[in-house]
Design a binder for these strands. Sequence first.
DNA 1: GAGTGGTCTAGACCACCCC
DNA 2: GGGTGGTCTAGACCACTCA
Lengths: 236, 236
Amino acid sequence: MLKYQQIALEIEKHIEENELQQGDKLPVLETLMAQFNVSKSTITKSLDLLEKKGVVFQVRGSGIFVRRHKRRGYVSLLSNQGFKKDLKDFHVTSKVIEMDVRKPTQEAADNLNIGLHDDVYFIKRVRYVNGQTLCLEESFYNKSIITYLNNEIVSESIFHYIKEALGLKVGFSDMYLHVDKLNQEEAAYLGLKEGAPKLTVETIFHLTNGQPFDFSKVTYNYEQSQFFIQANNELL
Amino acid sequence: MLKYQQIALEIEKHIEENELQQGDKLPVLETLMAQFNVSKSTITKSLDLLEKKGVVFQVRGSGIFVRRHKRRGYVSLLSNQGFKKDLKDFHVTSKVIEMDVRKPTQEAADNLNIGLHDDVYFIKRVRYVNGQTLCLEESFYNKSIITYLNNEIVSESIFHYIKEALGLKVGFSDMYLHVDKLNQEEAAYLGLKEGAPKLTVETIFHLTNGQPFDFSKVTYNYEQSQFFIQANNELL
DNA sequence: GAGTGGTCTAGACCACCCC
DNA sequence: GGGTGGTCTAGACCACTCA
């Protein structure tokens, strides 16, 4: 683990353990440099990482402060595949409905940048939170990258498996959001009425080298759809 | 303008003007260092900025590549208040329905971190894209920060005014998303039927010093709700 | 193994906040 | 004006990719 990552983790841990609140001030740079025995740029890099994650904000000439939001029960849209973290106070389960190797749909092939005759793992599952339906998820994994999957892996965390067992590195993702009305099939899976509101999130996950490996389409139960995004606006 | 920002702008411009596509390779670091006559860290900082913006991705041992998404007509959820940019091919207008100085609701006061007896500017407007309703927006501005607003400013870009005329710096924002059904009033403004799907986005904008100055609640016409997010997943 | 991006350092100087 | 974060440099060394 790199120094700046390690330091970021420790600072984050420190904030959590001491239950620091929005606006609480952290030690000044010089103190942190001494405390972790590293150069200024390394500390700065740690803090930039935490700023990107929405954990702190830095004010020139003033200090480094804790960033926290007040509302509970919201899922971060950006910490991908992170229901475990965000809903840690809740009980999230999932039921696999279909899982097989097949040829992709035109849509999946386009998004994964593969041909119609390449193989994909197709997984369809319903996820529940506290016994209520949370979402219906359909995923296509490029089989030439994700070479093996089974029911056990799919029931647990697929991404954990991809990172740890396959040794792949997830880089970035493109997400597309739509709001519409549930069709009959979706309504049935989610236990709602046809025509009820839905939020659809399509995500294309890429490895660090830019190769797309997963196209997934998730339809959320609108009654459970509470999402949260922390944005930084300094991008010009 | 700082060097690294300037360089980032030029690289971005270069990508746009040459219509580079996803996966196209940019010059190597050493070349860029020479070209802009700056040190390695400065170039790195420029590229980190562009990576955060979703314009490029960097692969260790390989190169720097252009990041582009394929779909058109999607609005970035993160480039706040950025309809102008994203929908530049479209015609976005807005109609101010209400605008006055008043006392905040309990909800607005909580989110703006002010008291019930402090003043806020309240603005309610409907925005249109190509003649169709896009959203209904209700905003509360902390009057002790945003000291003056008028109809002309509100019809144009409020954020441009805040930055340029008031000299304030926008730092970060917290966004909360919900999906639900339109009530009667919202349906009337959006020209839809009561009970139709809606996406509600509540945003709390903060200055760089962490002070919240704007709480806004936007209800989108689901027929126009196509949003896009570029995420980076390397946050541990 | 050559090429390429990433980390880390030490230090100078700058820009901003607040008293 | 003192305190504090941000920018920028030059250079050493490390880690990954790909032929």
